[in-house]
Nucleic acid binder design. Structure first.
Lengths: 188, 188
DNA sequence: ATTAAAACTAAGCAATTGCTTAGTTATTGT
DNA sequence: ACAATAACTAAGCAATTGCTTAGTTTTAAT
């Protein structure tokens, strides 16, 4: 005894996610979301509560997309460090839109909101970062010569490096990014 | 035959710079600037034209501060790569406010505005980045075993790494940052 | 067919945005 | 002392922000 939704939440969230990815959280207005998602503000608020709600779902959507296009490949690989290196190269393609890159939505959000980020948002971010780090550790462990201490250090190294790649891809050209990746993996 | 300004432009710009550094460009409103700079909006607009004008001057102020507290030390050093490594550690202190870090204002701005950044702002950013890179090259050249090709590659590597440090310092703890820096300079 | 519930449209809310302007006060050369 | 100029105060501008609400339309169980 009720009307059906004329949109699929997962579908409109993907549009929202793209917008947040391109513009950041604050610079994306509810009017912009309305246009991009193709639904009225009422529907946005009724489905997701508020702007933060849309963003939280967008982060989940981003995770899903990253998993499909990026993380699953790394997870399946048994190529150790080379697989992580390939992940770095894949990330650049993943985040590319036309000539420049949008970076990583998670990194963008950390950089924009920093410590004043909402608790819910911060939880999502830390959760995502932890997953990637554990995956790096898993691949580093394929080299049985490394102690757990070295693996921990290298995982931290790789996590920060990846964030550098995210920001740098917004202003550096492919050659500079290649130089970075090649040097990053020189003696791991 | 005219009244004197009741503020010194360099002084109020430093306050503005701190605010932009903490909050980013968009999230800093003219009302916030008014309060922090301690002058009326009229004075802001009469001295700096518009919000972008305040920001441009803030970027210049940031450069000056970075030069004094960070870059001059590196410039004076003849310790080659170790001097650059020290620069990385110095940067963390430089950008620290209370427990967490504000990152680098230049990196923050690239990450926030990306390709849609105003031309004037972009010029300032590229100019600053170029200076730092040339300084890295200068220090790398102190090791006469390196070819110019290797130096170029390592300079690109260091530039991206530094941006990683800027973002990561906003959410990672000191131990993780130390792991990053130590591993970064293992490759050089 | 009636009715209740949910999803829609679109107008409107107070607050905030970057910026301007009208009017007052202080400083200086004459 | 006076007039000219610039810096001040504070009110106000249209546009935009996140969000709500009043009223209409669609759906489905009775």
């Amino acid at each position: 005894m009720a009307r059906k939704k004329e949109y699929i939440e997962e579908e409109v969230i993907e549009k929202a996610m793209e917008l947040f990815w391109r513009n950041g959280y604050e610079a994306t207005s509810v009017r912009m979301l309305e246009k991009e998602m193709g639904i009225n503000q009422f529907s946005i608020y009724s489905s997701f509560g508020n702007k933060k709600g849309v963003f939280i779902k967008s982060l989940a959507c981003y995770k899903g997309k990253a998993k499909l296009e990026l993380i699953n490949k790394l997870q399946k690989s048994s190529d150790g460090i080379n697989a992580i290196k390939q992940y770095f190269y894949d990330f650049i393609k993943f985040s590319r839109e036309s000539r420049l890159n949008k970076g990583c939505l998670i990194t963008n959000t950390v950089n924009e909101l920093g410590e004043k980020a909402d608790q819910e948002i911060m939880t999502e971010i830390v959760n995502f970062a932890t997953n990637v780090k554990h995956l790096f550790i898993e691949k580093l462990e394929l080299n049985d010569k490394k102690t757990s201490q070295v693996i921990k250090e290298q995982a931290n190294y790789l996590m920060v490096s990846l964030q550098g790649l995210s920001v740098a891809s917004k202003m550096f050209d492919q050659e500079q990014l290649d130089d970075f990746i090649e040097n990053t993996f020189k003696n791991l």
